[in-house]
Design a protein around this nucleic acid. Structure first.
Lengths: 342, 342
DNA sequence: AGGTTTTATGTAAGCGCTTACATAAAAACT
DNA sequence: AGTTTTTATGTAAGCGCTTACATAAAACCT
């Protein structure tokens, strides 16, 4: 081997066939065991493989079989509290079936999201799991008619609903506000996500429905459009405090915004929950360990990741065993960040 | 196309060559532009590609060139606060060079980490970026002699130090405790990571060095071996409080443990920092927004991710442009979780 | 002009598999 | 036993590229 030669000198199917005294096809057959091979020959082949330490070349398999056994996952952000748990589930679910995960980040930008999709498709992915927010519904509908199957996480598009794994966000929005109302709050501010996102709109709708059911008027002044991130919550709270309106509770469309908002209150000497009650959304891990422990609505993003993976296993790799569920219900978690108003 | 036919009916290099009126080899040459092709033919080929919407089949390229353009990344946990920022950097750095990232999780378990490595190698990765903690140094040294180049994040092994990207943990440990000492604290508890991890041992060593330099005796009773996670901090703090020893400051080897420990204090009515000062380690995003804002030592995990990616680009893909740096220095961040003792 | 070097392009042999088709052997019939 | 069906294995043609080698054309010599 010369210095330049970095070839991996692995045994090939040919070496196995020679050692086992059978043809290439037979070796391939025992690998894929989709065709009957007599027990005797099968054993010879397995022995040969073992003694050569044979590992199939997955690239060659992919080329010959036109199936790459890889699934592309495109998410908005690789960091942040959501992606990790979701990826864990996706990776685990797929790896047991020997599929692998190729990742790309879309950074909530339309161009980058499209580039990510193109990249993953050009990489020969057998399917795509997408958690995207900047591209349009039309784009996704068109994409779903292409050669590479897609499944969407956290997005609901009527025309391709069988490919969507989503949370009932309206219901979650309702639950959060309903909880505050049932504690007796009337002066409830709402920090929403950005309105161009469906989940933000749905949560807001739920909030409004709860108010209406309790005959509380929705005051647009008490609604601030945030960005789902901590800084959005900070900006929102600072703004709300300048209003000089009585506010006894703040419902936030994300835990991160709630954290930001709470930090502003604490800095102003406002006690949580004694002076203002809070509830977040998403049930991300961190705030549990911080005081006050944040009430929240669960967003089972990890389960949605798992379901998306199972969808791929079922629809693309024709795994009969799995059954998939696409609509998830939120759940209320009561901890220490809310109490009845004074 | 029959119902069963899921073939992607893409143009191949052959189609391009026919349309452009040149040979396969020429088309390949303009794609890889490593051999001179006359401007005229090159243009014909590019036009043909464009009009056919040609996209090279990366699987075939990989098989023929024995280079998969993919880099395997194996981390302990896909969730948690570290992985995201690290992955973001790795993905971004590699994608601009059109390399892709295949992920696997090791779950801090020796068997699973080794399986992950085998999995990624069998997937034909050109290189592996490993952030592993359960496998032994010997295993990694052996692995590094194999066919697939590896680079280690967050681990220092003398024998293969040129493949290690790491943080000067001893120095960080020193800085944290030195800071508390310089505020005037003498009764300093230390919540460490698990001792089987090198970084935990190094941080502890730094802590001890700082104490020694300030002539403060290291009291083993004030040292609790945690697990780097929130619950470890909770257990540690509960234990420390039962000691009935005066403690005016707690140095934690991770922000997550600091969060857990602080939450225990707050539950006991102990004020932070007035009664007990805290400092964490890692500078993870969340606690910044929570009160008290956590002092900490930075762990530039994202930069280390980037460096690992650049290492691969340089050493494996022979990219001349990049230069890599392997040793990172921690930095002290002072926020609101510490003050001088009463 | 004839010879030599350089440059651009073509030819064809793989890369390591899968799989349709062919064939030989065994099993199941009359 | 002879014929048909079933089953196990082999043969060989790809999958879509890369690249060593061959060759034709152009450019440079003296």
């Amino acid at each position: 081997m010369t210095g330049k030669d970095t070839h991996k000198n692995m045994a090939t199917i040919y070496d196995v066939s020679v050692l086992a005294g059978v043809s290439l096809a037979t070796v391939s057959r025992v690998m894929n065991n989709n065709t009957k091979v007599s027990d005797k020959t099968k054993q010879k082949v397995l022995d040969a493989m073992a003694s050569l330490g044979y590992k199939p070349n997955t690239i060659a398999q992919s080329l010959a079989s036109n199936c790459s056994n890889s699934v592309g996952v495109l998410v908005s952000q690789l960091d942040g509290p959501f992606y990790g748990p979701m990826m864990t589930q996706i990776e685990t679910s797929l790896r047991v079936e020997n599929k692998h995960v190729i990742i790309a980040a879309g950074h909530s930008d339309e161009v980058q999201e499209k580039e990510g999709v193109d990249f993953l498709i050009s990489r020969g992915c057998d399917a795509l799991i997408l958690d995207v927010e900047a591209v349009s519904d039309e784009y996704l509908i068109t994409l779903s008619n292409g050669d590479t199957p897609i499944v969407l996480i956290n997005r609901y598009i009527e025309a391709i609903k069988e490919r969507c794994v989503y949370l009932e966000n309206e219901q979650g929005g309702y639950m959060a506000t309903d909880y505050m109302l049932s504690l007796g709050h009337k002066n409830i501010a709402y920090i929403s996500g950005p309105m161009y996102k469906l989940d933000a709109r749905d949560r807001l709708r739920g909030h409004q429905r709860a108010l209406a059911e309790h005959n509380v008027l929705f005051d647009p002044e008490l609604w601030f459009e945030g960005n789902f991130r901590e800084f959005g919550g900070i900006d929102a709270m600072q703004h709300l405090l300048t209003l000089n309106k009585p506010i006894s509770a703040v419902v936030c469309a994300s835990d991160q915004m709630a954290s930001g908002a709470i930090s502003v209150c604490l800095e102003h000497g406002i006690r949580v929950p004694e002076d203002i009650s809070f509830i977040g959304y998403d049930n991300i891990p961190f705030p549990t360990y911080i005081s006050p422990k944040l009430n929240t609505i669960s967003n089972p993003i990890h389960e949605m990741g798992k379901m998306a993976a199972l969808w791929v296993l079922k629809e693309v790799y024709k795994d009969k065993k799995v059954s998939v569920e696409s609509c998830f219900s939120p759940q209320l978690f009561i901890r220490g960040s809310a109490c009845p108003p004074k």
